[in-house]
Amino acid sequence: MGQDERVEAPLIHSGEWNIHYDYAVGETATRFFSRLRDEGKIAGKRCPECKAVLLPPRAYCERCFVKTEEWVDVGPEGTIEAFTIVYEPFDGLPQPPYAVAYVTLDGASTAMANFVRGLDLSVPEVAARELAVGKRVEAVFIDARKGTITDFHYRLK
């Protein structure tokens, strides 16, 4: 075999993954999303043992390892627990800037994430002061609800 001394630029082969999934949301989330879509209400599930009101609602409590049964309406107002404002574009994610916050809705034991809308995000320091931990927000329900988590978002009170 002859010695091949050519130096080749490494080849790149392109490929695509486009995997379609049909996620079954299950009976618990079906009830949550149906109520959100049809009535504009947010409900969590209470653990029969530790009594925590879990939001997003789960069919079981991870801590006590029992099934949850009881539904509890929460909100629509709540308190910011943590937030960020995204300024960098990421493939497959929304165009920045956008704000996302974890909010404990009144009556819930846990915080739930969603977008915070209706706020000028152009100056990071200014927007961040508006969105401080402990600030009060309310859930705002859009008109064209489809039974998904973005049927509502948060807005500063």
Partner: peptide, 17 residues
Amino acid sequence: PIYERSVALNAINMCSF
């Protein structure tokens, strides 16, 4: 995929929180 993916969470903003 059911409760949180569509609110644009990723590995950077989870640390921002």
